[in-house]
Amino acid sequence: MISSPIWLPATLLAGAVQAWRTAIQRRVSHSLSVNAAGLVRYLYGLPFALGLLGGYRLLVPGQLPSADPLFLLFCLGGGLAQIIATNLLILAFAHRNFVVGTAYSKTEAVQGAALSFLLMGERLNPLAWAGIGCGVMGVMLLSTGGKRMGPADFMKALGQPAALTGIASGFFFALTAIAIRRATQEVGGSDPILAALIVLVVTVALQTLMQGSYLLAREAGEMRKVLATWRVSGQVGLLSALGSACWFTGFATAPVALVRIVGQIEVAFTLGFGHFYLGERMSRSEVAGLLLVVGGVVLALAGAL
């Protein structure tokens, strides 16, 4: 059920900001371990998340809503799932290029649609499912580089490390989305933006505690590197907080599957950053895959109207 039209601009902005953040984070990851690169977005994102909540409270004053006891549980589960998903995505980058690594994770849209139906009973109309199919075809075209593949070749490709880590990343991102939506529903009050920002602050604080504790216990030397990269890492934190605020607003106001389908527009921004910011070449198959992804987004929007 869509409770506010703000979900659409929030989702589109989230896709753009996330692609930008991922491009910068990939550069940071060259000098950090997987866990350290993941911690960057939470540790440096927390001050900005607090700033977003504080700024919104100044613009829209009022009493803070109360939260159900399940609120913390959903924040904790969503935060942990996102840590796992982010680490898997960084591992996918190590096997293939930036665009393809992200493309594998975009199977999250179809995984999210299935999981949100099974766990939350959220249903989509036929046009939205057509959009999912179109988007998945686009993602697969991006992930295979436009090569002609028979069923045996396709199954072999799915067994490659990049595919396994990317698809697993998408699964945990889908779980993250479901947990965050449930967390926003546990926050009382009628302001979904305020609920999203409260969930954001609590979740990022828990993520900083979880991954920071792990890093100090297992990779203490990496913590010094995280602090030493504050100039670039600060940019990652800012973009991470902005992107998550937009995603959480989308989840608070629309079904998870719909937000994630439209969120596939991130692939378009990813191609742009991969080409212009990271200097990666854009092939014809990537353009064709992009068109399919965009077509899937259009179908999903048509189904939502």
Rank of each mutant, 00 (worst) to 15 (best):
A14P: 00
A268T: 08
T249P: 06
P47Q: 00
L13F: 07
R260A: 08
A228D: 14
T102M: 08
L258P: 06
A16Y: 04
R284D: 03
E266L: 01
Q18I: 00
S116I: 03
V287I: 12
P255K: 04
Q160S: 15
F248R: 04
G146C: 08
G146A: 11
N35W: 15
R181A: 13
G263Y: 02
F269Q: 02
A228G: 14
K106W: 15
P69H: 00
P151Q: 03
G51I: 01
G250W: 11
Q82V: 09
V256W: 05
L142H: 10
E186C: 13
G79D: 12
L59A: 14
P69Q: 05
E186R: 11
L70H: 05
Q235T: 10
R57V: 11
H95W: 13
G121M: 04
G212D: 07
Y104S: 00
G145A: 09
L80D: 04
L206P: 01
K147Q: 13
G133D: 11
S105Y: 12
Q207E: 14
F251D: 07
V267W: 03
G189W: 13
V34G: 02
V259H: 12
A228E: 14
G135F: 01
I132T: 14
V298K: 09
D191M: 01
L43Y: 00
G272W: 09
Q160T: 15
S143R: 11
L206N: 02
A130M: 12
R224V: 10
M155V: 08
A113V: 14
G274K: 11
A304F: 12
T165P: 05
C75T: 01
W7N: 09
V40C: 01
C246V: 02
T144Q: 09
L64S: 08
L209P: 00
G62K: 07
L238C: 10
P65R: 01
G250D: 13
S4H: 11
A168N: 10
L80Y: 06
E286L: 14
G263N: 09
G112M: 05
R260K: 11
G138C: 05
M120I: 15
V187Y: 07
L59E: 04
D191F: 02
L8E: 09
A268Y: 01
V34P: 03
I2F: 00
I193R: 12
L118N: 11
V293C: 08
W7F: 07
A113M: 13
M140W: 12
L124Q: 15
D68P: 03
F273W: 13
L271Y: 07
R224N: 14
G135H: 01
A205H: 04
G212N: 05
R284W: 06
W129N: 08
L227Y: 12
Q18K: 01
G250Q: 13
G188D: 00
A183C: 03
F276Y: 10
G145M: 06
Q25M: 04
L50I: 12
G77L: 14
C134H: 07
G121D: 06
T86P: 02
R224S: 15
N97Q: 09
L216H: 05
R57Q: 12
S143L: 07
G234I: 05
G189R: 08
G188P: 07
F98S: 07
M149A: 14
M137F: 12
S285D: 13
G150R: 06
L175G: 09
I178G: 15
N35Q: 13
G45W: 01
F48L: 04
R231N: 06
A254W: 08
N125G: 15
L119V: 12
V28R: 02
L206R: 00
G159I: 06
F173D: 13
